[in-house]
Deep mutational scan, measured.
Amino acid sequence: DDLEQFAKQFKQRRIKLGFTQADVGLALGTLYGNVFSQTTICRFEALQLSFKNMCKLKPLLNKWLEEAD
């Protein structure tokens, strides 16, 4: 599944880049005006958010990865 794959890759890249889940949540706030909690990022990576929320977060996290690289 696409979302599952993305969540896995996101977590690996985030760790490799040296960011915590909280860092990502704050960075999203800075970039897009939407601060996300560490818990939200954690749940995303664990696929524990609703499908709708996963779909909403994915493009933001994808963009963040591009910026962070």
Score class of each variant (00 low, 15 high):
Tyr32Ala: 07
Asp69Ile: 05
Leu57Glu: 00
Cys42Thr: 11
Glu66Lys: 11
Asn53Phe: 06
Trp64His: 02
Lys8Gln: 12
Cys55Ile: 13
Gln5His: 09
Val35Met: 09
Leu65Phe: 04
Asn62Phe: 05
Gln12Tyr: 11
Ile15Gly: 02
Pro59Ile: 10
Gly18His: 03
Gly29Glu: 13
Gln48Asp: 04
Asp2Val: 00
Glu67Val: 08
Thr30Phe: 06
Gly29Lys: 13
Leu61Tyr: 01
Ala27His: 13
Thr20Trp: 01
Gly29Trp: 07
Phe44Met: 03
Glu66His: 14
Ser50Leu: 02
Val24Arg: 02
Ala27Leu: 07
Lys16Ser: 08
Leu3Pro: 03
Lys56Ala: 10
Thr40Glu: 10
Lys16Met: 09
Val35Pro: 12
Val35Asn: 05
Leu61Glu: 00
Leu49Arg: 08
Ala27Arg: 14
Gln12Leu: 10
Leu28Trp: 00
Tyr32Leu: 14
Val35Ala: 06
Pro59Leu: 08
Lys11Pro: 01
Lys58Val: 07
Leu60Ala: 06
Leu57Ala: 05
Glu67Ala: 13
Phe19Glu: 06
Met54Tyr: 06
Leu28Arg: 00
Lys56Gly: 06
Ala46Asp: 05
Cys55His: 10
Leu57Thr: 04
Pro59Phe: 09
Arg14Met: 00
Lys63Leu: 06
Cys42Trp: 08
Lys11Tyr: 03
Ser37Asp: 11
Ser50Asp: 12
Glu45Trp: 02
Ala68Glu: 05
Phe36Val: 14
Leu26Asp: 13
Glu66Gly: 01
Asp23Met: 02
Gln9Met: 15
Leu49Asp: 02
Gly18Pro: 00
Phe10Ser: 01
Gln12Arg: 11
Ile15Val: 08
Phe19Tyr: 08
Leu61Trp: 01
Arg13Lys: 12
Leu3Phe: 07
Leu28Phe: 05
Trp64Pro: 03
Leu47Phe: 09
Trp64Gln: 02
Ser50Asn: 01
Ala68Trp: 04
Leu31Glu: 12
Arg13Leu: 02
Asp69Gly: 15
Asn62Arg: 12
Gly25Tyr: 02
Arg14Ala: 02
Lys63Phe: 11
Leu17Arg: 03
Thr39Gly: 10
Ser50Pro: 14
Phe51Cys: 07
Ser37Ile: 01
Leu31His: 10
Gln38Ile: 06
Leu61Phe: 01
Arg14Glu: 01
Lys8Val: 07
Asn34Glu: 15
Gly29Arg: 14
Phe19Ala: 09
Thr40Phe: 07
Cys42Ser: 11
Glu45Pro: 02
Asp23Ile: 03
Gln38Phe: 08
Ala22Leu: 06
Gln21Gly: 04
Ala22Trp: 02
Arg43Thr: 00
Asn53Trp: 12
Ile15Pro: 06
Phe44Glu: 00
Val35Arg: 13
Leu26Arg: 15
Arg13Gly: 03
Leu65Met: 10
Ala68Gln: 05
Ser37Lys: 06
Gln12Pro: 04
Ala68Tyr: 11
Ala46Asn: 05
Glu66Ser: 06
Leu57Ser: 05
Arg14Gly: 01
Leu28Met: 05
Gln38His: 06
Pro59Trp: 00
Lys63Thr: 08
Asn62Gly: 14
Asn62Leu: 11
Asn34Ser: 15
Leu49Asn: 05
Gln21Val: 13
Met54Lys: 00
Leu57Val: 06
Cys55Phe: 15
Val35Asp: 14
Val24His: 01
Ser37His: 12
Lys16Thr: 14
Asn34Gly: 14
Thr30Asp: 12
Gly25Lys: 11
Glu45Ser: 04
Asn62Pro: 00
Asp23Phe: 00
Pro59Thr: 07
Leu31Gly: 05
Phe44Gly: 02
Gln12Ala: 12
Phe36Cys: 15
Gln38Met: 06
Leu28Gln: 03
Val24Trp: 00
Ser37Trp: 02
Gly33Trp: 03
Ala27Pro: 02
Phe36Leu: 12
Asn62Met: 10
Gln38Ala: 11
Tyr32Met: 04
Asp2Asn: 15
Asp2Gly: 10
Lys16Trp: 04
Lys58Thr: 01
Gln12His: 08
Gly33Leu: 01
Ile15Glu: 14
Ala7Thr: 12
Lys56Pro: 01
Arg43Pro: 00
Thr20Val: 00
Gly18Val: 01
Leu65Trp: 09
Lys11Met: 08
Gly33Met: 02
Asn34Lys: 14
Cys42Asn: 15
Thr20Met: 04
Met54Cys: 04
Ile15Thr: 06
Arg43Ala: 02
Cys55Thr: 10
Lys8Trp: 07
Lys58Cys: 15
Tyr32Asn: 01
Leu26Ala: 13
Glu66Asn: 15
Thr39Lys: 13
Gln9Ala: 09
Pro59His: 07
Phe51Pro: 14
Lys8Leu: 14
Cys55Pro: 01
Gly29Ile: 07
Ala7Asp: 04
Asn62Ala: 13
Leu49Gln: 01
